[in-house]
Design a protein around this nucleic acid. Structure first.
Lengths: 199, 199
DNA sequence: TGAAAACTTGAATGATCGATCAAGTGAGTG
DNA sequence: CACTCACTTGATCGATCATTCAAGTTTTCA
């Protein structure tokens, strides 16, 4: 397996699935953009679905190096880490003129009857993201009300990220995204305040 | 324009776009399911995009009769109206084995480079949904903290609905949806409690 | 009643899709 | 040097895509 060719194919597919979606990206698109011929592609991958699997495995294996470590550079406060992560998606929206949202979320809604491998990989990617946020919340444990369900709260934050991106892309207006994050911030502040109460 | 044929086409397209998505639904699919021949379809619609426009116009014009009035039967409390609306999507997920999410949200993420008409129609549909929730919040105005941004909160609730559906569909687990709604409920309760404080 | 307009039928079109494969290249190994 | 085998080339395949259109049928209305 020529890993240079394979990697070029995967990175091209990753980028095109991100911008155009899975169904709207043709093999011919990927071939011309990656400067690879069809025989080489089908030497590395049995079919288009396996290309998607490879892309999702790349996301899964690279969450630390390609996402978290970048968003969390210079961040120490665990609560601020969460907002720094969300801000990464905000920047992605702005820099791409609202083309780049969340690659996993896009695929999750686009693929209606997924291959089991693909559904599981989408699920794992979500789970890894939730875990990362949950670790932040657990680090801030003593600042949150006793008995706070940090897993549910981490899921909630993913939910807000996905929904906020969806609305901002549709409206082509970053202010929608910002208002959503502001309400999330208010919710977190309410929790922090509640934790301070003597009760 | 034979409105019977037109309506049958639109309702079939609506259903198939909902379940399979826009790109994955072929004209041939719609023709066979609606028992219409291609000439009739293209007599009514210039092309596939115009079919999507008609579907989105149907959603836009039917939000009151086809969505709100059903979800809000037997609901009087404005806050509970919001949760009843969310519960409608929960039931849709369960009854369709996680096939039915939010038709607007699905299309919003799937269509990456939309025709301006389509982007605007997606936007209008979101705006109408937000308006409906905002009206509920405004009705409960005196129970919320003074100065609450009800528009931002309504956007936030749409965000949660979309994100919760996305996660529940991917995990094929309604518990994810429920946990998200629970956290939203806690946020609303925090607001209601805060409004009671003498400050 | 008769002609025009609206609508239906269904075969056909060219484009594009994912996928195949025979032939060729070249690096590594005996 | 000879052989192997991973890899590349690029023409080609059948399926399916959205769309077209000539011919036929029904409805409208003067």
């Amino acid at each position: 397996m020529n890993s240079d060719t394979r990697q070029r194919i995967v990175m091209t597919a990753l980028e095109m699935f991100y911008v155009k979606g899975y169904n709207s990206t043709s093999i011919a698109d990927i071939l011309s953009r990656s400067q690879v011929h069809s025989g080489s592609l089908y030497h590395c991958f049995p079919g288009k679905q396996d290309l998607l699997v490879a892309v999702l495995e790349f996301y899964r294996d690279g969450i630390e190096d390609n996402l978290l470590s970048i968003a969390w550079a210079d961040q120490t406060d665990p609560i601020e880490k969460i907002f720094a992560l969300l801000n990464g998606y905000r920047i992605g929206l702005l820099m791409s003129d609202f083309q780049h949202g969340c690659p996993i979320g896009n695929l999750a809604l686009e693929i209606s009857e997924p291959d089991p491998r693909i559904r599981e990989l989408l699920d794992v990617n979500f789970a890894n993201w939730i875990d990362a946020v949950e670790r932040c919340l657990n680090s801030a444990n003593e600042r949150l009300p006793a008995g706070t369900d940090t897993h549910a709260l981490a899921e909630f934050i993913l939910t807000i990220m996905e929904g906020a991106i969806m609305q901002a892309r549709t409206a082509r207006d970053i202010a929608v995204f910002d208002r959503n994050i502001t309400v999330l911030r208010q919710h977190i502040n309410l929790l922090l305040e509640k934790a301070k109460e003597p009760s």
